[in-house]
Design a protein around this nucleic acid. Structure first.
Lengths: 207, 207
DNA sequence: GATTACAGTGAACGACTGTACACTCAACAG
DNA sequence: CTGTTGAGTGTACAGTCGTTCACTGTAATC
C-alpha cells in the first residue's frame, strides 16, 4: 500500500492528492452528470477530509474546469495523432476513424465527460465549446492543404470542418454507448458518413 | 388572478397543477441540467407543498419522463410540419431549415431540454434516444420516396437520415446559444451543410 | 343529505450538503 | 537546531434534501 521509501517531496504529495481528486471525480462521472456530484464524496473518494478539498480547488466548479483541461489534452493528442497526412480521401478517412476509435477506447472517461457536459450548460459547457472551436479551427487549417479544397473560402472550410467534427462527435457518443463488440459496425458507419460528405466536395459551389 | 366562475371539476384542477409542475420544471431547466433540480423547488414553483408532489408523480424521474413526452410531442409536430414534400432538393432544404428555425424559436424550452438531456445519461437520455431513433426512422422513410434515393439500401438510408438529424441537432443547439439576431447566419450555414451532404448523394456507391 | 375519495397541508425525521474554525504534525528554509 | 509553512484533521453549524404520517376541506358519489 505505502509508496517506496523515496522521501516524496511536499509539492509532489500535493500533486498526488490533487490528481486523486480529479481521478475520483472522473470515476464518479462515469454514470452521472457533473452537477450532481458533491464536494464531500469527491473528497472522500480521494481519501481526504472535506475541508482539505479547499487546499486544491476553491470550488467544485474549479475542479470541473481542471477536468476539462485534462480531457481536452487527450483530445489534442488525438488530433496530433490523426495528422499523418495520407494522400487519398479514403486513406485519410479510415485512418482518422481508426484514430478516433483507438483514442476513445483508451480514454473512455475523458470522452464521456466531454460529450456529456458539452451541452450541460454552465461554465463547463462554455469551456468545452471554446476548446471544440479551437479543434475545429485546426481541422479547417489542415483541410485547406488538400488539393480539392485549395479554392474554398475560409468560411466554407469552417463549415466543412464543423460538419466533420459533428460526425466525429456523433461517432464518439455511439462508441461510448455501445459494447466494444459493435465497434466495427460503428466505425464502418462513421466512414460511410465521412465518405458521403467528402463526395460532395468536388461538386461544391458556395453560392 | 382567479379563474372565471366555471366550477372547475376535480380532475381539471388536478391536471392544472400537474401542468404547473411541468411548466415550472421546464422553466428551471432553462439554465441548469435536470439532475440538479429538486422536488421541493419544483413543488414550490408550482404553488404546492412538497408532499403534494407525490399526488402527481412518484418521483422526479417520472416527472422527467413526462417532460420528455411533452417535448417530443413538439418534435413530432415539427416533423409533420416539415413534410410538405417539395420537388427539388434546394426547396426541401430551405423549407426544412425554415421549419426547424421557426419551431425552435417558438419552443425554446422544449428544445433546450431535449438537447441538454440527450447526453446527460440516465433514463432521460435513454428515453430521448428512443424518440430520436423513431424520428430518424421516419425521416429515412420519407427520404426513400425521393427519386435519387430509390435504389439505396435501407441501411444506407438510415445512415443518411442519421447524418441529417445530426446536422439539424447541431443547428438547433447553435440557435439556442445565439441571439436571434444571428439566426440568419446560422440557418444559412445549416442550409450549406445539408446542400453539401446531398451533393454527394448522386455519386454514392455503398461499397 | 350522508358518505366517500382524494388533492393539498404542516410538522417532523434522518441524511446529506457546503463551509467556518481551531488544530496537528511533518517537510522545508534560515 | 529552530521557526515557519501548509496539507490534512475534527468538530460544528445552518441549510436543504426526500419521504413519513396524520390531517383537512371539498368535489363527487350514493
Amino acid at each position: 500500500m505505502s509508496e517506496p521509501l523515496t522521501p516524496v517531496s511536499r509539492q509532489e504529495r500535493k500533486l498526488r492528492t490533487r490528481q486523486a481528486l480529479l481521478d475520483t471525480a472522473l470515476e464518479l462521472l462515469a454514470d452521472r452528470p457533473f452537477g450532481t456530484l458533491s464536494l464531500r464524496e469527491v473528497a472522500k473518494g480521494a481519501g481526504i477530509v472535506p475541508t482539505a478539498f479547499y487546499r486544491h480547488f476553491a470550488s467544485m466548479e474549479e475542479l470541473g474546469v481542471a477536468l476539462v483541461e485534462e480531457a481536452t489534452r487527450t483530445l489534442r493528442g488525438m488530433m496530433r495523432s490523426a495528422r499523418t497526412d495520407p494522400d487519398t480521401y479514403q486513406g485519410m478517412i479510415s485512418a482518422s476513424v481508426a484514430t478516433v476509435h483507438q483514442f476513445v477506447r483508451a480514454n473512455e472517461d475523458h470522452f464521456r465527460f466531454l460529450t456529456r457536459e458539452r451541452y450541460g450548460g454552465g461554465p463547463l459547457a462554455r469551456a468545452i465549446a471554446v476548446e471544440l472551436r479551437l479543434f475545429s479551427g485546426d481541422l479547417a487549417i489542415d483541410l485547406a492543404r488538400f488539393a480539392p479544397l485549395r479554392s474554398w473560402s475560409t468560411e466554407d472550410l469552417h463549415m466543412l470542418a464543423d460538419l466533420i467534427v459533428s460526425v466525429m462527435l456523433t461517432t464518439i457518443v455511439e462508441l461510448l454507448e455501445a459494447r466494444p463488440a459493435d465497434d466495427a459496425k460503428i466505425t464502418g458507419t462513421a466512414e460511410k458518413r465521412l465518405r458521403l460528405v467528402l463526395l460532395g466536395v468536388p461538386h461544391w459551389k458556395s453560392a
